[in-house]
């Protein structure tokens, strides 16, 4: 079972929690300055440090050249790797947990990017898991570190702890009320950022937002995690209030039912249309208006993305073909 299919804490609002640690080996230049041979040396060193006899069976070690571009993009759609990592395979490798809750990119922007992805709000657990990998790595390899600047990273924005923690939030009621702009400027003052998690950045498709820490230097891992958790809980409380108010409105409840109707009957659905409709239906399901497991809807959000459909179909479909496949899969899931 994949992690995003299991029910969990604050699951009505929080889709997932992600923690990432950026690390580099002291004895090699950063990836952009590293040839393929040296990159492979880094990959092997990290693989040997992190994969032990106890855990080897639950991970796959994937040299990125062994994937087709579509398979790589599908991993990016699932947020298991970055789009940039998917766009170039030279000397890169991925250590991926079989249940997809740990994903370690080798020679992305940094030599090692340890990522843990848990469902719901689980910042402390996710950080603890990432830290365990970090500790295993530093037992075996000299890590690039400076007492003033902390962990040294290719891009100075990650200096310090190299920790980026984020929470993916479904905030349809706050978005509907037009409070996101104000919220986002308040959050910026606290050293955090919130932005649309899906789409090209022009708008938050499906009202799904990613809240993450910005500052990594001068703050401890524990403090960063606690801050983020506290702000996430406040946003969750605000969203709950906004939902209660919104669901007194018959016009809005009608929109939820209509969205459900389209998802159950459409012959073609584009990814962004589906995402916006699933967002409304997910709100209905979370608030007890519709009787649909949230995990079913979470799964649609992940698995109905273009490259992931291509991978499932085993071929490169046209956009129109995918829209038909998507509509049918959605219909089946909601039947």
């Amino acid at each position: 079972m994949k992690r995003y299919e299991t029910p969990t804490s604050n699951g009505d609002i929080v889709l997932s929690t992600r923690v990432r640690l950026a690390r580099n080996l002291k004895d090699y230049p950063f990836p952009a300055r590293l040839g393929v041979e040296d990159r492979e040396a880094v990959n092997n060193l990290v693989k040997d440090a992190l994969l032990t006899d106890e855990n080897r069976d639950s991970f796959d070690y994937i040299p990125m050249q062994t994937l087709t571009p579509v398979q790589a993009v599908s991993l990016a759609e699932k947020h298991l790797i970055s789009p940039e990592f998917a766009s170039d395979s030279a000397g890169r490798a991925l250590i991926l947990a079989k249940d997809e809750d740990v994903s370690i990119m080798l020679n992305e922007e940094d030599h090692v990017r340890i990522q843990v992805i848990y469902p719901g709000l689980a910042l402390e657990d996710a950080y603890a898991r990432a830290e365990a990998f970090d500790k295993a790595l530093e037992q075996k390899a000299a890590i690039a570190f400076d007492e003033r600047l902390g962990y040294l990273t290719q891009c100075p924005t990650n200096l310090g702890t190299g920790l980026r923690a984020s929470v993916m939030l479904h905030l349809p009621a706050l978005a509907q009320g037009g409070t996101m702009r104000r919220l986002s400027s308040t959050i910026a003052k606290l050293g955090l950022t919130i932005r649309g998690a899906l789409g090209d950045g022009t708008r938050a498709v499906g009202d799904i937002f990613q809240l993450s820490n910005q500052v990594t230097l001068g703050i401890s891992e524990t403090a960063a995690i606690q801050n983020l958790n506290a702000i996430a809980l406040q946003i969750i409380a605000q969203e709950k209030n906004a939902r209660a108010a919104l669901l007194k409105d018959d016009v809005f409840i009608d929109r939820i039912w209509r969205a459900y109707g389209i998802l159950k009957s459409a012959h073609m659905l584009s990814c962004s249309e589906m995402t916006d409709l699933v967002s409304l239906v997910r709100l209905g399901a979370a608030e007890g208006i519709l009787d649909i497991p949230l995990e079913t809807l979470n799964r649609l959000l992940v698995e109905m993305q273009p490259a992931t459909i291509n991978v499932a179909e085993g071929r490169r479909c046209t956009a129109a073909e995918r829209d038909v496949i998507r509509a049918k899969a959605v219909k089946d899931a909601l039947a």
Binding site: V73, S82, P83, P306
Partner: peptide
């Protein structure tokens, strides 16, 4: 890539 994913690292 008509899918959408975050381009944070970019």
């Amino acid at each position: 890539y008509d899918g959408f994913f975050d381009d944070f690292s970019l």
